[in-house]
Structure formats: structure tokens, C-alpha cells
Simulated scan of single mutants.
Amino acid sequence: MLISPAYAQAAGGAGGGFDLMAFLPLILIFVVFYFLLIRPQQKRVKEHKEMLSKVRRNDVIVTNGGLVGTVTKVIEDKDELLVEIADGVKVRVVRSMITDVRAKTEPANTDAAGKKPASDEKKEEKK
């Protein structure tokens, strides 16, 4: 034989102890995935939910199916919208199926009593 029996027996296996260095690459991969994939996705979902909660009448929206239309009515209890996609053609759309709000309408510029501020009244008088 070419290898002596004493030399072959000397090469023992590694100890059964916990080795942190073996798990370090896995931990680093998880950290990289968290900051590059998981965290940005959570941020995007949060922004999408906020956008959906702010949809109101006369907003121009785009649905998941690619339909572009104007919101004519918001049905709060069913979480649906009535969207006009063409003249006289209205469809009901589930709020979660909206992908984008293209044109936001400005909130009504009135105070709590429903009156316009004095500066707006002066502008209208000049017209």
C-alpha cells in the first residue's frame, strides 16, 4: 500500500460544535435580500394602499386590466368605485384593482360652513 495505516487514521472528522462562520454567508444573504427586495416591496405596498384610500370623484384612474376612466361615484361600504370608461358607459371596479391615479382632482376649496374663502370670492368678482 502507498498510504500507511497510521497516516489514514490521523485525519479525524471536524468537531460537532456550533460554527458561526458556517452560517455567516446565509445571514449576509438574508440581510441583502431584506434591504434590496423585501423592504422596498413593503414600502411600495404601503404607498399603493395610501393612494387607493385617497381616490375620489373625478379622478382619472387606470385599472389592472388597462382600462382608463373617470371615477363618478365612490361606494365606501362595498369598497367599489363607479368608473365611466366612455360616454355613458359606467362600470363598477373593485378599489384594489386600481394600479394608478393619473389625474387627481383638487379638494373643494371651502371652509367648514361650506363657504368659499374671501380671496376666492374676490377672484371670481374680477372675472
Results as ranks from 00 to 15, higher is better:
43 K>E: 11
80 E>I: 06
18 F>Y: 11
55 V>G: 01
39 R>T: 08
30 F>W: 12
33 F>L: 14
59 D>V: 05
36 L>P: 03
85 I>C: 05
33 F>C: 09
38 I>S: 08
90 K>S: 11
39 R>L: 08
60 V>H: 02
28 L>N: 05
86 A>V: 07
76 E>T: 10
88 G>N: 07
78 K>N: 14
74 V>L: 06
58 N>H: 13
65 G>I: 04
35 F>K: 13
55 V>S: 00
76 E>D: 07
17 G>R: 07
97 M>C: 04
67 L>D: 00
93 V>K: 01
43 K>A: 09
40 P>M: 13
79 D>M: 08
40 P>A: 10
89 V>F: 15
27 I>W: 11
47 E>I: 06
101 V>I: 11
27 I>K: 06
53 S>E: 14
60 V>C: 04
27 I>E: 10
87 D>S: 12
89 V>K: 15
101 V>Q: 04
74 V>H: 02
65 G>E: 15
59 D>S: 05
103 A>D: 10
89 V>D: 14
57 R>V: 12
60 V>D: 00
30 F>G: 09
71 V>H: 01
18 F>N: 14
89 V>A: 11
48 H>N: 04
29 I>F: 10
69 G>L: 00
86 A>S: 15
80 E>Q: 07
93 V>Y: 01
93 V>N: 01
20 L>R: 12
71 V>T: 03
61 I>T: 01
60 V>M: 09
41 Q>I: 13
